[in-house]
Amino acid sequence: MWKITYRVHRQKGNEPPHYETFQVEVDPEEYVLDGVEKIWASEDRSLTFRHACHHSTCGACGMRVNGVEKLTCITKIKDVVQDGGTLTVEPLRNFPVVSDLVVDLGPLYRKMAAVQAPAVHALSMTPWEGQNIAPPADIPMRSADEEYIRLPDCIECGICISACPVAATDPEYFGPAPLAAIQIQGLDKPELLALADSQEGVWRCHSAFECSAVCPSNVDPGRRIMDLRRQVSAKRLKLA
């Protein structure tokens, strides 16, 4: 077991935020979220944080760990701190803070709804699969007219928005996850083309690629935004 210090962002109601430290005994193989839950269970019952699935499929537990956006349920303690060291956990940036480590993801969910991000989609609709994953179209269902349905890679955790330097100054910018959701669907729907090809759409991105660096779910939003730009440009050239 390791003895480490959690330095935790605290904020209640309209009080100004401050940091509080907790000495915790943890198994270094545990995840950062486990440590936060342990603090709540045995040290301070007033600590608030978002979490649900604890294995990176729900997107609830995004936080900043030592300043970097992480999905805390899959971030091992030993990967971000050493025995005896200090670990800082803060809420995501660019969202309203509700309390302590909890942010309001409402703005992201409204945008995901606006871009009609599919909640489930056909397996074959997942381009750019990761390494060692068979191309999905090659895996058959029992009959030819059936298609596998899967949940998308994007878990709507808000981590990409938190890391985006443009989102920091422009809350109306659609941001990485919603734009990636447009790219996955393509630009056949005129309303999606209009959203992508707008001031708060693909042209607002300034190519910092922070979204792709922090995305815990292999969505690679940066590349998808760039591809969307290409698609929008192609549409415009054809129209001209």
Partner: peptide, 25 residues
């Protein structure tokens, strides 16, 4: 299957404290 993951489960045992259950490697 869960999104891009595979999940294996599970076990079944008894405990007293339910708020924080440590992982048994």
């Amino acid at each position: 299957p869960q999104r891009r993951l595979a999940v294996v489960g599970t076990t079944s045992f008894s405990i007293e404290e339910v708020d924080y259950v440590p992982i048994d490697r």
